[in-house]
Structure formats: C-alpha cells, structure tokens
Amino acid sequence: MTPLRSPAPGAGERGPGTGTASYSDGPGNGAQLVDTEGRRFADTYQETAAGPSFSGSVAIAPGDTALGLVTFEAPTASRIAKVRSAPNSGFADSIGQWTVS
C-alpha cells in the first residue's frame, strides 16, 4: 500500500466555525475512504509532507476552526470514490460524505 497523495491545502477557502458546541474528538477515528468497488480504508498515523496532520485528538471551541490532514493508505490500483466522516469516533448517528472526482 502507498499513501494517497493529494495537493497541499491552501487553494480552498475556509469560513468561520458556526457551531454552538465544542468539538473534541480524533478526526481520523471516524474517517474512511471508499473506493469504486466499495472497499473501505481507515486512517493511518503516517506523517505526510502535504501539511500538518491531526495526529490524535483535537479540541475546538464554538466559533473556532482547526486545520489539519487525515492520512489514509489504500492500494495503488484503488480508485477512491468517497470520503466519509462520522463524529464521536465513528459512533455518531450522522455521517458526512464527500464524492471524490
């Protein structure tokens, strides 16, 4: 397996946090990549040169933001289709999902 490579962050915009509750969790704990065959891949704690990582847990106060990368490993031949994230270390009732194109 080889680390998924992506461009360094910085091209997008990030707005202010709008939540009313604090967030304390490990961003990678409930994160997965899903490939076009439906296989799921969990995060890894490997370092990346693409930018700062979330290497464990993070605490964010209401209105604040945090920036970091979650690193995954997937087979080189896999075509990644989605990124999924569930708060509360993956045990939340709601899941965020983004399509990768």
Rank of each mutant, 00 (worst) to 15 (best):
M1A: 15
M1G: 12
M1H: 12
T2A: 14
P3W: 01
P3T: 15
P3I: 13
P3G: 10
P3F: 05
P3V: 12
L4T: 12
L4D: 03
L4F: 06
L4R: 11
R5T: 14
S6L: 13
S6N: 09
P7V: 11
P7Y: 06
P7L: 09
P7H: 10
A8G: 11
A8Y: 04
A8D: 11
G10R: 10
G10N: 10
G10H: 09
A11Q: 13
A11R: 14
G12M: 06
G12T: 08
E13F: 07
G15W: 03
P16T: 09
P16Q: 11
G17F: 06
G17D: 05
T18K: 07
G19T: 06
G19H: 06
G19D: 10
T20F: 09
T20E: 14
A21G: 07
Y23I: 08
Y23W: 10
S24V: 06
G26D: 12
G26L: 06
G26M: 10
G26N: 13
P27V: 03
P27H: 02
G28C: 03
N29R: 11
G30W: 04
G30I: 03
D35F: 02
D35V: 02
T36F: 00
E37L: 13
G38N: 04
G38I: 05
R39G: 02
R40Y: 03
F41A: 09
F41I: 09
T44H: 07
T44S: 15
T44L: 05
Y45R: 15
Y45D: 15
Q46Y: 09
Q46H: 11
E47R: 12
T48L: 08
T48D: 07
T48F: 08
A50E: 15
A50S: 15
A50D: 14
A50Q: 15
G51I: 03
P52A: 08
F54V: 01
F54C: 01
S55P: 01
S55C: 01
G56T: 01
G56Y: 01
S57V: 02
V58W: 00
I60E: 00
I60H: 00
A61E: 14
P62C: 07
P62G: 06
G63W: 04
A66W: 00
L67P: 00
G68S: 02
G68N: 05
L69A: 02
L69I: 06
E73P: 06
E73I: 10
P75G: 02
P75L: 04
A77V: 02
A77W: 01
A77K: 01
R79P: 01
R79I: 09
I80W: 02
I80H: 05
A81R: 03
A81Q: 03
K82E: 14
K82Q: 11
V83W: 12
R84K: 11
S85P: 00
A86F: 04
N88H: 12
N88V: 10
N88Q: 15
S89M: 12
S89H: 14
G90H: 07
G90N: 07
F91H: 13
A92S: 15
D93Q: 12
D93G: 15
S94C: 03
I95G: 00
G96W: 13
G96S: 14
W98S: 11
V100Y: 06
V100N: 01
S101A: 14
